[in-house]
Amino acid sequence: MKKDLLILGIETSCDETAVAIIKNGREIAANIVASQIESHKRFGGVVPEIASRHHVEQITIVIEEALKQANVTFAEIDAIAVTEGPGLVGALLIGVNAAKALAFAHNKPLVPVHHIAGHIYANRLVTELKFPLLALVVSGGHTELVYMKEHGHFDIIGETRDDAAGEAYDKVARTLNMPYPGGPHIDRMAQEGSPTIDLPRAWLEEGSYDFSFSGLKSAVINTVHNAEQRGESIAPEDLAASFQASVIEVLVKKTERAVAEYGVNQVLVAGGVAANKGLRAALEKAFADNSRVELVIPPLSLCTDNAAMIAAAGSVMFEKGIRAELSLNANPGLDIEIYNN
């Protein structure tokens, strides 16, 4: 009988220090996340230098907890997977150097992982992937449609030309005086209001799968300013609902169109914004009558940054033979298509 494959994953690309251990690419043996969100709240956003300092404080504690939770030792671990990028360079460096030290100390292979590949592979912890598939990636830093013909092969068919969806959420939340992080507040307010305010939808040129949210964000800010100048009041719940309706309509319509054009078997939702209730409901509705396509949305804890997703993607990369040397560096602008061949 074949021995279980055990991959230890490390993720420190932003404000979560996370370590996980995944068995055979799909089973969570341990998944530890030390969030810094309380520390960054006072600054109204993630401060890179503070994030890097917290990662150094947490890293060995989190690794130890993961091994304890999985009840394994390094002798049983097959490889160390780590987020190489994209992300905040100073933050990424902590995970990368801790991973290299572990790989060196225990003579284990080192597997570099793209953060977005990780978000996509969070879905494999829910159900087996069925290729070809389409992944809708929506997070604070990303809005992308990714086509996968097979394991470990990523083709970006659409991406944001300016703000990521999550970024637009945070900026709109700030305009409405909501505390950081704003996304969940907008989502909650949107459930209470109705989309009565007319806001633009950026479809871009015919056939494009790209996104653009900066015009929408500006329209929201202008609506608030104009109302203030006229001494009128807008119900923030209605504005949140109108904003959310615009974002979701564009995301869902483009996803539907790509599903039809590429003839995929699965639609995976990935990234922190996948936790958005409005988006989940709209996608579920859009694909409810489509028996050919399976819609997969991971639970909230696997949508936000975590290391289980990095170890899950790392398991596939490990089996594909992808390895890094001890000279591995953090790569804040890493391209997801780099490991395709």
Partner: peptide, 14 residues
């Protein structure tokens, strides 16, 4: 931070 992270991780794991 690079040196300290490597030193901490090595000392802890060894």
């Amino acid at each position: 931070r690079i040196g300290v992270t490597i030193a901490k991780t090595l000392a802890w794991t060894l």
